[in-house]
Amino acid sequence: MGYESSVPLFWRLIKPRYQLIGNKCTTCGNTFYPPKFLCPICRKEGKLEEIKLGKTGKILTFSIVRSAPTGFEKETPYPVAIIELDDGPRLTSQIVDWKEEDLQIGRKVEACFRRIYTDGKEGIINYGLKFRPI
């Protein structure tokens, strides 16, 4: 789970997490997601600009979590994957609305908005993007 019950920790990442907002270095042209605070290639010569990434991509690798961390127990088993977005960057998330045959390297997926986990019954609900086969 995300670090327990920290509202600001969740809140400050709402925009990139909900909308796939990454950034692009205008010096080297590389696109980053999750967004960077410094272009790791150009460093001080780099200049980062916000960019909204497309929702589609493909599975590079995957697994199915059967022994879950705190906060995810009720969802097991759930597939997780590293996804390469069609716009370039790679990210990690869950695969939803899946059938056995969807879990394949190369499978096309698109982002969808889902609950990620909740901080117990009284805490906030953490949302974000998961990916479904298309």
């Binding site: 009720k74 969802e75 939803v96 969808c112 908005f113 889902r114 609950r115 609900i125 949302y127």
Partner: peptide
Amino acid sequence: PSIDEDTATIAVEAAL
């Protein structure tokens, strides 16, 4: 709904 769907997630998908 799936275990991770609620009114907010449904509303977002419809709105998109």
